[in-house]
């Protein structure tokens, strides 16, 4: 049997799954940002009438996933698997959204890399012949993440300049088979790297080596160069992480040019005072489901490399002084 595996860490799909539909739902602050118009739905406030921020996050995810299915125009019951993940303990946002959708459910945890991970695994399920429709979605919520990972939101304290702002939002894509539409042609799953960063206010620095490692292997596995892509977008490295990635890549013999950007630098503008940029599962998910998908469909982007970046720590491991392991997962989408 022919392996679909190429090189170290990459899979190349023989019948590439198509992104049938994508949908994004965000909070008010994201709606006011530079990408505001690219989102399908903008909430008026952060809680939208739910009882708690956790339930609000789950609602975001549910709306995004249902939105993608509706946009594709297929009945929900045609979906074979729902793949979802988020940042909260025991991925409750996803579990509760799955309770509403009642589809066969695979919960994923890759921290903020989960969107890319879900798209990779979903594509494997379809290309492998295990499913005809796979629904992928992730969510994050600023207030639920802050209180789990950092400090209460009402506490008067300063965020460090390298800190990033967790996106309130959820993005979803529906994968299937079709003759037209953006296709996922390859995926490179990353390995966990830890270069010893312990500062939870500097996630970008913790994740950058893992992203660079995934990029390096991706290019070698497929014998490609960064210039072969019209866009290389890392998940949520922010200002510090994006600079570090470029520098680490350069030292490893590969230079990222103007095609490289970071989703964390796209969502907010300077006046929104978020310091080093955006983060959270929702960050790369809503940028991809909104802005990037629109440009792929319009033909202004031909081949995109989305590299989700995840910080695989927990509040407990940080209190115990453990450094923050990072991961990067890459998927290739061609318009």
């Amino acid at each position: 049997m022919d392996l679909k595996r190429v090189g170290n860490q990459t899979v190349a799909f023989t019948s590439p799954p198509v992104i049938l539909a994508s949908y994004s739902v965000v909070g008010p602050m994201e709606g006011r940002g530079p990408l505001g118009k690219t989102f399908d739905k903008v909430w008026q406030d952060n809680i939208n009438g739910e009882k708690s921020w956790e339930l609000a996050e789950s609602k975001l995810l549910q709306e995004a996933m249902q939105g993608a299915v509706e946009q594709a125009g297929i009945p929900l019951s045609d979906v074979d698997y729902m793949l979802a993940g988020d940042l909260l303990n025991q991925i409750i946002s996803s579990n509760f959204a799955a309770r509403k959708l009642a589809l066969p459910f695979i919960g994923l945890y890759g921290a903020c890399s989960t969107m890319a991970l879900g798209m990779a695994v979903g594509s494997m399920l379809i290309d492998g012949g295990f499913a005809s429709h796979v629904l992928v979605g992730v969510s994050s919520h600023h207030d639920s993440a802050e209180r789990q990972y950092r400090l209460p939101t009402e506490q008067g304290s300063q965020r460090s300049l390298s800190a990033q702002w967790t996106v309130t939002g959820a993005g979803s894509v529906l994968l299937g088979q079709s003759v037209t539409g953006p296709r996922i042609t390859a995926a490179t799953l990353g390995r966990v790297l830890d270069y010893g960063e312990t500062d939870v206010g500097n996630m970008g620095a913790a994740m950058a080596p893992a992203v660079a490692d995934t990029l390096l292997n991706h290019f070698q596995d497929l014998q490609r160069q960064p210039g072969d892509y019209s866009l290389i977008a890392s998940g949520d490295l922010g200002m510090v992480g994006a600079d570090l990635t470029k520098e680490v890549m350069l030292r490893s013999g590969m230079s990222l040019g103007s095609e490289y950007t970071d989703c964390g630098l796209m969502i907010y503008d300077k006046s929104q005072d978020v310091h080093a940029g955006a983060s959270g599962c929702g960050c790369s998910a809503v940028v991809f489901a909104g802005n990037i998908m629109q440009r792929l469909k319009a033909g202004s982007l031909k081949r995109v490399l989305l590299v989700g970046s995840g910080a695989l720590h927990s509040p407990i491991s940080s209190l115990q002084g453990e450094s923050v392991p990072g991961i990067g997962h890459a998927v290739v989408i061609e318009g």
Binding site: L193, N202, V240, R251
Partner: peptide
């Protein structure tokens, strides 16, 4: 990656505001 954790720490310190 052609960078050691020690070199990375220096680089990260330099690039972090």
């Amino acid at each position: 990656l052609k960078i050691t954790p020690e070199e990375y720490k220096d680089l990260s310190t330099k690039l972090t505001p």
